[in-house]
Amino acid sequence: MTSITETDPPLQTTRARDKREALYPYLLIAPSMITLVVVALIPFLYAIYLSFHEARFGRVTEFAGFANYASLLADERFWNSVSVAATFVFIAVPIEFMLGLAGALILGQNVKGRSILIPLLFMPAMMAPVVVGLLWKIMLAGSWGFISYNVFERFGMFPDTSIFASPDYALYALIFVDIWQWTPFMMLAFFAGLQALPVAPFRAAAIDGAGPLRIFFRLTLPMMTPLLAVIGLLRFIDAFKVFDTMYILTNGGPGTSTETPSILANKMTFEFWNIGEASALAVIVWIAFFIFCNIFYQVAKKRLNAF
């Protein structure tokens, strides 16, 4: 809809107008893009700058080359945080994915009262992560939390302490909280995808007398694959950057047993005040995220035709 004009003006003005027309979209995006450059690109570039300098206690001193990166990559604590995050993501996300898909299929049956159930099931995903942390502190903390007392104590688990204080199980408690928070959302997202599938192939299959399992594996699953991939990838990216809930519940402890790169970067900055190395960590995480984003974008664009 770029060049629809009323009459035929002289050539000169047409050219001037064409030029203006061509500028129009850039004019529309300019305020936003300038803002984003200021609030996203400049901090990023500044983080890169910091990562190549010796910077402690808020004072940037001398150029350090790759020293920050070298000491970070030699730090066992960094590799521990990577493996903690990997454990967290690779256990939580597949479980959320499977349960969410099962839930979506259940919700797709004759369920009454969806108009009330669906909004309520959105609650965990939409609420503040700090409140999620608070909720599970109440449920699981100490030996007096609701579940600690009514379930764990009854079975003689974690006597006199909280599951969050147990080096072996704290991470699994965090994984459980993440599953609690995100499974309902996965279920509703998959359900929305199911509802959007065309009806005709399913009718045809039913007429041909295909069983429900056959319909699921031959029709539903293949048709849903791009959508499943996109939602799964997005959840994967989000799970890597979980911070608030962990900060409230364990803050990386006990020891370093639940310390993810996010928690470690935060500690490096605001507890050890080693800003150079923290920035190096931030840059590495950032690059990893950029790669994930790119994959997400390509998959969503090509397979789902979404963007």
Binding site: A40, P43, F243, I275, V283, V285
Partner: peptide
């Protein structure tokens, strides 16, 4: 441009908060 917008959405907040705090 799109990828830039998406990336600034997805960036982990901890990475941003460090430069933000100093600036």
């Amino acid at each position: 441009l799109f990828l830039f917008i998406l990336a600034s959405r997805m960036a982990p907040p901890v990475c941003l908060v460090i430069p933000f705090y100093l600036i």
